[in-house]
Design a protein around this nucleic acid. Structure first.
Lengths: 249, 249
DNA sequence: CATCCAATTTGATCCATATCAACAATGTAC
DNA sequence: GTACATTGTTGATATGGATCAAATTGGATG
């Protein structure tokens, strides 16, 4: 299975975006070849996290954003009462921590859903660099704005769509993100548990489970545990649009 | 009633952040006195919009962000099916359009909820300026990250909280935003219709109406139309926390 | 391999809120 | 001021998904 682990350089501490297979998805995509060194200079090679380990914790001092190199990460907010709300899933090439850039402390907790490696971008250095590289600054605005849009999209899903529509939307989102990485868009394994899906989509675990089996019975997907095969992508897309079409015939 | 209309300058087209009563809330707050001119230079004095008029439209070319000077704005996404999802309300001193910075076109539609005046910041010039003023760049990151957090907060409200909790949270949010502007935090008039509140919070209008009257019967608020008085702020805060406390005794 | 604990699935019941249906109030145009 | 449209309120009923309960599967550990 395609993993995004870059070749080792002579210097073990310096990242090598040049060789990283994700350079066309990650921050480097915004940067000209000859400026890439300046980005590499500020990257701290992050360590490897095992499943369940925290990359960072809510309410601890915010220092860095992290790019996922391999594996996957879930972010969540813990309320005063101890309730967890999953706010996002992050896959290789995606940047985690942008929601914390307004605060002294991390606004959420990030933990590895599986064995996961990351690149660390200390914010002070990152901000300094984006001040010098307009393209990189532009890309940061782009990413953050994208994250706002994603979150609005989620809010919309939560407030207006049925359980089936929410789950179809999630499956399609994962699908396209696997595709971006040149992996199969129809045959993948979910990095997260049903529980996380439920929490993220504002549903009960039982409901998620039921919808999965319903989709399976309809021949739209095949699911055994976390292994998923999308048998009928068009049907899934139809499900996500069902709602809006019905209410405006 | 305190309005944020700045004094007119000799040059009618140049904004005068120096005299604007919102300069401690708006972009200028991040800028040193002597750099303020550079910000003023890129601002286009926006025109006045009447209630219902569009400041910008989803899917038209994205050119500018807008700061609310007086009045208020609601942003919403229209789905393919024509469904509207209200994504936010913006009051004086707040910046509208950050969610569009990743796209060629505006990601949402912004319309005036009442007679509203704005300052316009063309993005190309704004990006150029933030590249030169690190503090301003930092502030932009701050604002965008804040918007991500707000949206996560909304998603959380939508997925985990009851109708009463959602409405209490909205009232408190408005309250603190009025307070920031040195207006009464307990006595204000809602800029938006019940319908918009319902849409924003993922509820039916009828439910919003019922909760308002329930709060009123409990003596927590007094509401006549859009005029609202918060009689018992602590009770409201208690409502928003009710949920998390109950589930973790 | 046996044991244990966590994750998933399935079934039965209940409830918060949507929906449907009037009606009242408020605002707006003539 | 009257008429019409929009917005808000209140009541009755229906329902999607939560919750409670229990069985099943799967993965980890010794």
């Amino acid at each position: 299975m395609a993993q995004a682990i870059p070749f080792r350089q002579a210097s073990p501490l310096k990242a090598s975006c040049h060789q990283c297979s994700l350079s066309n998805l990650c921050l480097p995509l915004a940067i000209e070849e000859n400026d890439l060194d300046r980005l590499e200079d500020i990257i701290q090679q992050g360590r490897i996290f095992n499943r369940g380990e925290h990359i960072f914790d809510q309410s601890t001092p915010f220092r860095s954003c992290f790019a996922v190199k391999s594996g996957s990460i879930k972010t969540s907010i813990i309320t005063e009462g101890g309730e967890e709300q999953v706010t996002g899933f992050f896959m290789p090439g995606e940047l985690v921590g942008l929601d914390s850039m307004s605060s002294e402390n991390y606004a959420c907790t990030a933990r590895a859903l599986e064995r996961t490696s990351v690149c660390e971008f200390p914010v002070d250095k990152l901000e300094e660099l984006t001040g010098k590289l307009p393209d990189l600054q532009h890309h940061m605005y782009h990413l953050m704005s994208q994250e706002i849009q994603n979150s609005h999209q989620l809010a919309m899903l939560l407030s207006k769509n049925t359980a089936e529509e929410r789950i179809a939307a999630l499956l399609l989102s994962l699908s396209s993100r696997f595709q971006r990485r040149r992996m199969s868009p129809t045959n993948f394994s979910l990095p997260m548990a049903r529980n996380d899906i439920a929490n993220f989509l504002g549903l009960a675990v039982e409901t998620v489970s039921r919808v999965f089996t319903r989709f399976q019975n309809q021949g739209i997907i095949k699911a055994r545990g976390r292994e998923v095969e999308l048998l009928d992508v068009e049907a899934l897309q139809l499900v996500t649009r069902e709602f809006s079409r019905q209410s405006h015939p």
